[in-house]
C-alpha cells in the first residue's frame, strides 16, 4: 500500500484516533437535517402553490411574496435569521401569550431544518405550481361532471398527477436542499461540512477532510438521484412519452 493511503487510513479510519466514525455520523446528520428540511419545504411549497392557485387574492400575494423574497436572498442570510432571530421571536411569543417564564430555545438542528425548509419551500412551490398546470383541465372537468366532490377529485385526480409531474423538479429541490444543508454548519450543528472543518482544523489537514467530506456528499447526491430516478420511472410508467 502506498504511504499516503496508509496515512489517510490512519486519519480517516475507524481506529481510536481515526475520524471515520465521526465523518459518517456527520453524513447521517446531513441526511437527517436535509430530509427534515425537505419535508418542511414540501409542506410550505404545497401551501404556497395552493395560495397562488386558490383564486384568493390575499393568499396569492402572500405566496408570491414568500417565493420571490426567499429566492432572491442568500440562504446563509435566512439561516442567520432563523438561528439568531427564531429564539427571540419564540421567546417573546412564549412569554407574551402563554405567560411562560424563561426561554424557549431552538436547538441547532431545528433552527437548521426550519431555515433549509423555508428556502426549499420557495423552490418547491414553483415545482408544484408547474406540475399542477400540466394536469389536464379536461380531467378535472370530467371529474366534476361525474359529480365527484372537489376534495375527492383533488385526492383522486389532481394530487396523484401533480406528484407524478412534480417528481423530476422535486429531485432537483432535494439536491438543492442537501447542498444548502452545508450552510447550517454556521449554527454549530455538526453536519458533514462542519465535521470536515473541525477535523481539518484539529489535524491541520484540511485537504483530506474536505475532500472526504466532498466525496461523502457525492455519494449521497448520487444515491439519492438514483432513487429519485427510480421513483420517476415508477410514477411515469404507462405514461406515453411526448
Amino acid at each position: 500500500m502506498p504511504q499516503w493511503l496508509i496515512d489517510y487510513w490512519a486519519l480517516m479510519g475507524f481506529g481510536p484516533t481515526g475520524w471515520g466514525l465521526s465523518m459518517l455520523r456527520a453524513a447521517g446528520m446531513t441526511i437527517a437535517v436535509s430530509s427534515a428540511g425537505f419535508a418542511l419545504g414540501s409542506v410550505l411549497g404545497a401551501l404556497a402553490a395552493w395560495g397562488r392557485l386558490s383564486g384568493s387574492r390575499i393568499a396569492a400575494v402572500i405566496s408570491a411574496t414568500y417565493t420571490t423574497v426567499i429566492r432572491g436572498i442568500p440562504e446563509l442570510l435566512v439561516i442567520y435569521l432563523v438561528f439568531f432571530g427564531g429564539a427571540v421571536v419564540l421567546g417573546w411569543i412564549w412569554r407574551t401569550f402563554w405567560d411562560g417564564e424563561g426561554f424557549v430555545s431552538l436547538p441547532a438542528f431545528v433552527a437548521g431544518f426550519i431555515a433549509v425548509g423555508i428556502c426549499n419551500g420557495a423552490y418547491q412551490a414553483e415545482v408544484f405550481r408547474g406540475a399542477f398546470r400540466t394536469v389536464a383541465r379536461g380531467e378535472i372537468e370530467a371529474a366534476a361532471a361525474f359529480g365527484m366532490p372537489r376534495a375527492l377529485a383533488f385526492r383522486r385526480i389532481v394530487a396523484p398527477q401533480v406528484l407524478r409531474f412534480a417528481l423530476p423538479g422535486l429531485g432537483n429541490c432535494w439536491q438543492l436542499c442537501l447542498k444548502e444543508s452545508a450552510l447550517i454548519s454556521v449554527t454549530g450543528l455538526v453536519e458533514l461540512l462542519r465535521q470536515s472543518f473541525i477535523g481539518g482544523r484539529s489535524t491541520r489537514d484540511f485537504f483530506s477532510f474536505l475532500l472526504t467530506g466532498a466525496a461523502l456528499y457525492l455519494v449521497i447526491t448520487t444515491v439519492s438521484s438514483a432513487l429519485f430516478a427510480a421513483a420517476e420511472r415508477r410514477a411515469l410508467r404507462g405514461l406515453k412519452r411526448a
Binding site: F84, G91, G188
Partner: peptide, 18 residues
Amino acid sequence: IVAQDWDGIIPGLTAGRY
C-alpha cells in the same frame, strides 16, 4: 457543555440557548 461559534455566542446566550 455545548460548542457554539464565536460570532453567535452572545446572541445565543440572550436567546436562552444556554
